[in-house]
Design a binder for these strands. Structure first.
Length: 329
DNA sequence: AGCCTACCTGGGTC
DNA sequence: AGACCCAGGTAGG
């Protein structure tokens, strides 16, 4: 399949900050070609940005995504809708940035450099199990664990240029009792039990359909439902609410966000060893009061800024604030 | 309710 | 080299 394009400039969407900012762990960046490869919706995608377009290409997909008729245009339209939904392209990000800048000086000061950070609309199952893996862990190891889940239990989608791609496993697969010991073997540590147990609980609650009911609930209710699962606490529950259940006011408070809050907004919280439940609520409420009903999205922009302070050269976004200058080689 | 602490693993630091 | 520390936390006390 060839490249398709969607009109979308870099201030509306910055791929590196969005795909490599700790939201999803399934995207890889080919720096030479400046192309991204990733999997969602049981489909393998390549993405790139050329001028004011987001371009996408389908590398492979499962039959259930394919229409039986020969009308390829219908299928093309479906893929396009899938991309638009994943990046929430119906939302005008420049307007949101402007709004958040007006409400907060810190946001204003870093939003020029960290433009185009979008909250992905992820699939709840992948999101949930990825973030169980994330607890007390490094991004590099989280990524490799998510990959292991897929190769071990996911359905094969296709092979391309010598690489085989797998969909994220279903809840049923992860609920099998032997999963825990297998994952232990694969180096998941204590998360192995959380994964199997949560999966079994979700199956009990109705499987993938259960997530729809969570999306229809109010944020706080969805959050407390999620926290009934073994291995899901306040932080991961908020990640799921924010990233895959459309509760954009959810605001995961982790070590980074705590640091940001203590340094810039709530000085009395400085120097604490760990974030207590009380502090968690205080920090979340502070940002919700500051930014409003999409506080979680705004906070993600700050989170990206904080992440990148530590690995400046690796993942720097292209500077679009100035006319383009090519580096001499 | 609020505060410990143990927990798997791997990469970094000194 | 080897002992520490830390990483997008959580359960159980």
């Amino acid at each position: 399949m060839s490249w398709n394009k969607i009109s979308c400039n870099r201030r509306e969407l910055q791929l590196i900050g969005t795909l490599n900012g700790g939201q999803s762990f399934r995207w890889t960046h080919d720096k030479d070609k400046d192309e991204w490869t990733g999997i969602f919706s049981k489909t393998v995608w390549k993405l790139r940005q050329i001028e004011d377009y987001l371009q996408y290409k389908v590398i492979g997909t499962l039959p259930e995504n394919s229409t039986k008729s020969n009308k390829n245009s219908k299928q093309d339209e479906k893929f396009k809708k899938t991309i638009e939904s994943y990046f929430r392209l119906n939302l005008n990000l420049l307007e949101s940035y402007k709004e958040w800048s007006g409400k907060d000086e810190l946001f204003k000061s870093c939003c020029q450099q960290f433009y185009g950070i979008r909250m992905l609309k992820q699939e709840p199952v992948e999101n949930l199990f990825s973030f169980i893996c994330s607890q007390n862990n490094h991004i590099s190891r989280i990524s490799s664990m998510v990959e292991k889940l897929c190769t071990q239990y996911g359905e094969e989608i296709c092979s391309n240029e010598g690489v085989t791609y797998y969909a994220f496993p279903t809840v049923d697969k992860l609920a099998q009792p032997e999963v825990e010991s297998k994952l232990r073997e694969l180096g998941f540590g204590y998360r192995a039990k959380f994964i199997q147990k949560s999966a079994a609980q979700i199956v009990e609650l109705g499987g993938a359909k259960w997530f729809q009911t969570l999306q229809d609930m109010k944020y706080k209710d969805a959050r407390s439902e999620l926290m009934k699962l073994h291995g899901i606490g306040p932080k991961v529950a908020d990640c799921i609410c924010l990233m895959s259940l459309d509760h954009l006011e959810a605001l995961p408070v982790d070590t980074h966000v705590y640091q940001i809050a203590a340094q810039n907004y709530l000085p009395h919280l400085r120097g604490k060893k760990n974030v207590t439940e009380k502090m968690y609520v205080e920090i979340g409420d502070h940002f919700r009061k500051l930014y409003g009903d999409m506080a979680g999205w705004a906070h993600t922009v700050l989170f990206c800024a904080d992440l990148k302070k530590f690995k400046q050269n690796e993942n720097d976004a292209p500077d679009v604030s100035q006319p383009k200058k090519r580096k001499k080689k």
